[in-house]
């Protein structure tokens, strides 16, 4: 990952994802991704730019590959396993714009996020 974000959401994402990307297999794979994801919450948007690594920036990039719309509350519920990503999606708590045009990008990004959450749960000793 390059650069360190200065906003709270960016810092949290950076910490969550950097440990995943340090893993050789996943990290090597992500280095080949070329896509831009905007995460929109009730706070400010955050842009994740995958291009020979990952850069996280405050604000929304123009013409992103994907735009993920959710809330901190939903992310927290997924993090503590009280809500599955699929249930969140089906209930409209997690929406992904661009998913039909870029299904591979959507699958990759959501898998990376899930991997980061699951990894953290394992680190803290949870399920």
């Amino acid at each position: 990952m390059t650069g360190t974000p200065r906003d709270l959401l960016g810092i949290i994402l950076h910490r969550m994802l950097s440990s995943r990307l340090d893993e050789s297999v996943l990290g090597a794979s992500v280095r080949h991704w070329r896509m831009t994801v905007v995460l929109e919450t009730e706070y400010h948007p955050v842009t994740l730019r995958f291009d020979e690594g990952l850069t996280i920036e405050r604000g929304a990039a123009e013409r992103p590959t994907l735009t993920v719309l959710t809330t901190l509350d939903t992310v927290a519920a997924i993090a503590r396993s009280s809500l599955s990503p699929l249930t969140a999606y089906l209930h409209g708590l997690l929406r992904v714009k661009g998913m039909y045009r870029h299904p591979l990008a959507a699958a990759r990004f959501l898998r990376l996020l899930l991997s980061a959450v699951t990894g953290r749960r394992t680190e803290r000793g949870g399920a």
């Binding site: 009730e42 809330t71 927290a76 993090a79 953290r120 803290r124 949870g126």
Partner: peptide, 21 residues
Amino acid sequence: DRRVNLIDWDAITVLMGRDAN
């Protein structure tokens, strides 16, 4: 105001790491 959030500490340790404990 939907920007008000109460986050259980289980989730905080996932989002922010084990240091949170």
